[in-house]
Amino acid sequence: MAVDFDNEIKAIRTTVKSVRDVSDIDGLEVQITDLETQASAPDLWGDVEHAQQVTSQLSRVKAEHDRVTKMEARVDDLEALVEMGQEESDAETLAEAETELASIKKAVGDLEVRTLLSGEYDERDAVITIRAGAGGVDAADFAEMLMRMYLRWAERHGHQTAVLDTSYAEEAGLKSATFEVKAPYAFGTLAVEAGTHRLVRISPFDNQGRRQTSFAAVEVIPLIESTDTIEIPEADLKVDVFRSSGPGGQSVNTTDSAVRMTHIPTGTVVSMQNEKSQIQNRAAALRVLQSRLLLLKKQEEDAAKKELAGDIKASWGEQMRSYVLHPYQMVKDLRTEFEVGSTSAVLDGEIDGFIEAGIRWKRGQERDAANA
């Protein structure tokens, strides 16, 4: 069946226009002009922290502006390609246009999802912590599988990552792990991955080959910035130092460089051992602790708002996604109903479909709550 280029391009233009309106391109251009003026000031680098904030903000705003305007240019180029192919009845050109149409439709879908990321901290880098839950050694192995899945996802998208802490289980896998994903909107994108994940499979650790169900918890928080006001009095902190350990509990550091930091009022605990010195681990632990307290503060504020608004149905359950490897192959999100049959692809980082469905679902939940 021949592709209806006219209607397809018309639909794409409608979506891009709505994205342009939501993104406020005119407002972004005003911001770019103002930030470029600040960035060109001769005394800019007299205050290094301020200079870094200005250049970082300029880079982010330009990227947001270019994402929309470059998409509009791609659609213009596609339309010109189609016209040329149709006028000359050139099958090769029309085939090229069809391929580009499919590519643009996917890119526009991604662009549309990005416009839904408008939360207070959505544009931040993300800090992800994975903890093994019920299920013994299978749960620890599952935690390591999930960590690899997210690191592979970040790699596929060209995002930088940094592993901050790993606590290995005795037999296999991880008790817990914490790592950063450094990319614009990493927190807003990955926040929908927070929750309890369930794995069902024939256990490779059971010599009787029995089916095992195990769980792992995923926590996603926004990375603290220097402009955030989260002050922690020294009296509220308990800091312990210990030697870093590797798989099987073996010591990998002959000095007490690892740091465990406890926020006494909330009981929040952060451990760091992947930096080379105690000072570096302490700084990294404090930054993640501040990030967790920042999110906790926002959650408390949101809870207070919900209480004022009345009873609103809870949106996040105990278990948000199942990974079934036996007796059939399927990964299914229990909130959005999105599912995929290729479990190996998902565990290798192909989770964009789940993330997109989760973002749309979450924004729908927020709209329903606001209207309640």
Rank of each mutant, 00 (worst) to 15 (best):
E171P: 00
A284E: 07
H157F: 06
D125F: 13
T129Q: 15
R74K: 15
R321K: 12
G119N: 12
I355E: 04
E193D: 10
A235T: 15
E120Q: 13
L151F: 00
R13W: 03
E231T: 14
A95V: 04
H157G: 13
A41M: 00
T129R: 13
T229V: 13
G109E: 09
A11L: 09
L190A: 08
Y323P: 10
P265Q: 08
S344K: 15
K106P: 02
G109S: 10
S56P: 00
I128K: 04
N274M: 14
A73I: 04
I221E: 02
E170H: 01
V192I: 14
R335W: 01
E339G: 00
D348R: 02
Q365C: 13
V181M: 09
M330Y: 07
G349E: 07
Q278Y: 07
M1H: 11
V239T: 14
L237N: 09
V288R: 01
K106I: 15
A139L: 04
Q365E: 14
A235R: 15
A284L: 00
S342E: 14
Q86S: 11
G246I: 03
I230R: 09
M147L: 11
K17I: 03
K276Q: 13
G136K: 08
P233I: 00
A2W: 08
N371L: 12
R367G: 07
E356V: 00
K238V: 11
D302G: 01
A41H: 15
Q319Y: 06
A51P: 07
R131A: 06
D256N: 13
K175M: 00
I232S: 08
G136T: 02
M261A: 03
V192A: 08
G133D: 09
D165Q: 13
A107M: 10
H65F: 13
G85R: 08
W361S: 09
E231F: 06
W153G: 02
A51S: 10
M84R: 08
V82M: 08
L334V: 03
E98H: 02
T93I: 15
V192C: 04
D66V: 00
R211Q: 12
A154C: 06
S167E: 12
V220T: 02
E92H: 11
S18T: 15
A183K: 07
R152A: 13
T161H: 06
G248M: 06
N371C: 04
A154F: 01
E120G: 01
R335V: 03
E275K: 09
R210A: 05
A370S: 12
T69L: 11
K297W: 03
A314F: 02
R292G: 04
T55L: 14
G249C: 11
A132G: 12
A39K: 06
E337K: 12
R363T: 12
K238G: 00
H263T: 06
A283H: 08
A314M: 01
A172G: 08
R156V: 00
V346M: 03
E144K: 06
D228A: 11
A369R: 10
A134F: 03
E300Q: 15
